[in-house]
Structure formats: structure tokens, C-alpha cells
């Protein structure tokens, strides 16, 4: 038996909304330690990795008697989650050898209980080994700022060059019709921690990435006040949105290089 009771259905809604356009079907791997999801987009350019820990406060109850994999069409899951109120408590339930995933939505005042079943899918996807590495540079910034930068620069070109150096981080685009650049300096005088821009730098990095994917990742902006960008030269960037009281959602994006 698997049963996970999440206090805020809005968190699950936001996660699925941020994934469903790039990742059509995905396996939720459930174990006693929590729920993980790893999926790669069809063009092998982007990968998402979700971790929801069972011992965090976001779950009111969590039970997973044996490890199970729930293969779900994310478009369908998005439709089901739209049937939940934002303040509803959502319970996910499945048997040990499941064909069906059940969603139960309890309204805050317990006056309305709704239940939906969806059929599970066999999804043949191999898990990739993502090495734990120390990155040359980790940028922490407000998530809405990163969203704005990606949106602004995507007006002029397909690729952004991210340049991390000791003064801060530069985002540059060069298209056929024009170019743009946004410089962010490290902030030290901002009151709120979530408004700060910090750059942990071991080595400077200059790397280009497809804006189409970065813009898609920023659909997760409402999950978190801050976003962390981890970069190393000639390796995929990690765009991480911490999820309070649950864990995190990470996106990996392969770089573009000059031939």
C-alpha cells in the first residue's frame, strides 16, 4: 500500500504544470524515503529530477510498504489536479502492484471530498546516473528575476550565454536582429534573503544554453522564491527550485557549443 497525504494540493499542481509541456509521461518512483521522478525530454536536451521527501512537513501522512513505480501521463494528471481546490489536502493512493492511482481531495473544512482514479501506464524509461559533482559556480537569485531575464532575452535570440565571474553574472543574447545583455551584481545590502543575488565562484564559467528550455523551466517559478543555477564549463547546467517543506525540483540542460 502506498498513501501520501500532501497538505497543499497547490504544490503538486505547480510541479505538474511546470513539467507537463516538456515531459509527457513520467514514472513516479515511490519508496519509504519519499517520491522521486526523473524524466528526459524527447530530444535528449533537458532532464527533470523531482524529490519529495517523506519525512518533511509537507506530508501529513506517508506510507509506502514496498517500492512502486507509478507511470503517469502528466497531461492527464494536470487535468485531475485542476479538479482540486488550491487549499485542498490531496492524498495519493495505490496498491502494491498498482494499475490505478487514486487522488482524494479534501476541502479545508472537510465538507467536500472528491475522488478520482486514473489508469497507470507502463513507461519504459531508464534511469540515468547523475553524478554528484562540485560545480565551478553556483548562482542564487530571486526566481522571478531569472524568469524575467529568460523571457526578456528570448525576444532577440535562441541562445543565452551565461557568464559567471567574481563580480556577478552576465546573461547575453545575440540574434540576427539585435543583441541584449543583463548584468546582475552580487547584492549585499538587500534586506530579504530571497531578494539577494549571490555567486559562489570557484572558477569562472562562460556557457551557452537554449532559451526555449530555460523559459520552459521557469514555469516552476511559483514553487520557490529563489532559484539556484549550478554551472561547470562544458557540462549541463542545473536549475534548482527548492520546494519548501518537501524537497526540490531540478532541471538539467545540456550546453550549446561553438563548432
Amino acid at each position: 500500500m502506498f498513501e501520501a497525504k500532501m497538505l497543499q494540493s497547490s504544490v503538486l499542481k505547480k510541479i505538474i504544470e511546470s513539467l507537463k509541456d516538456l515531459f509527457a509521461d513520467a514514472n513516479f518512483d515511490c519508496s519509504s524515503s519519499g517520491i522521486t521522478l526523473q524524466d528526459m525530454d524527447s530530444s535528449h536536451v533537458a532532464l527533470c529530477y523531482l524529490k519529495l521527501r517523506s519525512d518533511e512537513e509537507g506530508f501529513e501522512d506517508y506510507r509506502c510498504d514496498r517500492n512502486i513505480t507509478l507511470g503517469v501521463n502528466l497531461g492527464l494528471m494536470s487535468k485531475i489536479l485542476k479538479c482540486a481546490g488550491n487549499d485542498d489536502v490531496v492524498t495519493l493512493r495505490a496498491e502494491d502492484e498498482p494499475n490505478i492511482l487514486t487522488f482524494i481531495f479534501d476541502s479545508k473544512n472537510s465538507e467536500r471530498v472528491s475522488k478520482y482514479d486514473i489508469k497507470l501506464m507502463e513507461i519504459d524509461s531508464e534511469l540515468l546516473g547523475i553524478p554528484d559533482t562540485d560545480y565551478s559556480c553556483v548562482v542564487k537569485m530571486p526566481s522571478h528575476e531569472f524568469q524575467r531575464i529568460c523571457s526578456n532575452l528570448s525576444q532577440l535570440g535562441d541562445s543565452v550565454t551565461i557568464d559567471c565571474h567574481k563580480e556577478g553574472v552576465d546573461f547575453k543574447v545575440a540574434g540576427e536582429q539585435g543583441s541584449g545583455a543583463i548584468k546582475l551584481k552580487q547584492t549585499t545590502s538587500v534586506d530579504k534573503e530571497e531578494d539577494q543575488v549571490t555567486v559562489q565562484l570557484n572558477e569562472p564559467v562562460t556557457q551557452s544554453f537554449a532559451l526555449k528550455f530555460l523559459c520552459a523551466f521557469t514555469k516552476a517559478t511559483s514553487l520557490s522564491d529563489t532559484v539556484n543555477l549550478s554551472l561547470t564549463q562544458d557540462t549541463p547546467v542545473v536549475v534548482e527550485y527548492p520546494i519548501a517543506q518537501h524537497g526540490y525540483l531540478r532541471f538539467y540542460l545540456a550546453p550549446k557549443i561553438e563548432e
Binding site: 533537458a46 551557452s208 550546453p255 550549446k256 557549443i257 561553438e258
Partner: peptide, 13 residues
């Protein structure tokens, strides 16, 4: 001209 690299190049074991 930039070329998009494949993620499998990094993560495939």
C-alpha cells in the same frame, strides 16, 4: 553557429 549537445553524452553510464 552553436550546436546543441545531447544530455546522454553526460549521464549515460
Amino acid at each position: 553557429q552553436l550546436t546543441q549537445l545531447d544530455l546522454l553524452k553526460y549521464f549515460k553510464e
